[in-house]
Design a protein around this nucleic acid. Structure first.
Lengths: 183, 183
DNA sequence: TATCGATGAGACATCTGTGTCTCATCCGGC
DNA sequence: GCCGGATGAGACACAGATGTCTCATCGATA
């Protein structure tokens, strides 16, 4: 009865997102397998985190593909990106706070690629005259991550309705707090 | 030669912001004292974190006082808040990701008070017709924390210049990404 | 049914961090 | 100079998690 590796990673992500210090034993139980079996599939805790990171990178990359970042105007592409990335928001929030620990070669390269794609999207919006240019694309990228993380956390805490998450993030990013007469 | 408790907390905050699992020994060394002395001043790791949290709450409260949140229009008050809170940004980023673990009585009450003040600021802006009302004040509060955290991290990583931090946060919050003809 | 691979349960050693304690030392005030 | 409080260095036991191993069991398949 082969263990569903993907299912294990999913459970692990759910637990670690809530508490970064969740033990291997707790993860194993949550996944419905024994600690021994967990170790048979992932050499150790580091390997598990690494696998999670690779999974997160892959999922975000797929979300980007699905969002077709290069199509249409940048703002609409950004909306699509947030929509596609929402299911991975919790995972991103976890990795965003955790990735300071592990500085793997391939992993960093993976993040750099993703950052680059988002950066490019913001730059495109700036070049097309739609996005303001007094805020660097690098900062906008970080801010996007930050808002996704904050939003995911807020939903988890019950301070924001899950249904509003997408709208909350995108609208704040695009339009800001201020009520504008027209735009 | 009395240990400078404030200095120890400052060092601890700096280290823990970078890596949440920094050991007591590392903190002690960074503060230039021995682990034994560190334990003489803080009963244990929990007590140290608790002290950090109280310190963060106090500092943020002072920043709010200095920002005079009730004076003038809400947007300007928000600008003042970000300016005053900037020196504590790193600390806030740490506590923001860490407070999910410790659920102290008094501590939570302290955060609730601060959240309430920020919430009130956003609500005031909404009632005065300056802030949009399709984004809840609760979400705006979370978003502010998120952006401060992301900004602090971006500065730490060298992706945003420290001098730009204030401007980056406030402008994104108030105006959003979009280039607007007029506002 | 017999077999083989995968799993669960548990024992075990190890490691890291923590909290406590003791003892020597240092430094300032008397 | 002497004394007392504070500190540093280090030993110690303890707790929790980790990684490895063994052995029994279960289930699918030949």
């Amino acid at each position: 009865m082969a263990v569903d590796r993907e299912q294990v990673l999913k459970e692990a992500a759910a637990l670690l997102t809530r508490r970064a210090t969740t033990s291997m034993d707790e993860i194993a139980r949550a996944a419905g397998i024994s600690r021994a079996t967990l170790h048979r599939h992932f050499a150790g805790r580091d390997a598990l985190i690494r696998a999670l990171e690779e999974r997160g990178i892959e999922q975000l990359a797929q979300a980007m593909d699905a969002a077709r970042l290069e199509d249409g105007d940048a703002a609409t592409a950004l909306r699509r990106l947030v929509t596609e990335a929402e299911p991975v928001a919790g995972m991103l929030a976890f990795l965003f706070t955790e990735n300071q620990l592990f500085e793997g070669e391939a992993v960093n390269a993976g993040w750099a690629r993703l950052d680059g794609r988002i950066n490019a999207l913001f730059r495109r919006g700036q070049e097309e005259g739609d996005f303001r240019i007094d805020l660097s694309a690098a900062w906008l990228t970080e801010a996007l991550y930050g808002l996704i993380g904050a939003g995911s956390w807020a939903v988890h805490e019950g301070r924001v309705a899950r249904n509003d998450l997408n709208h909350s993030i995108v609208e704040l990013l695009l339009g800001g707090i201020r009520r504008s007469m027209e735009k």
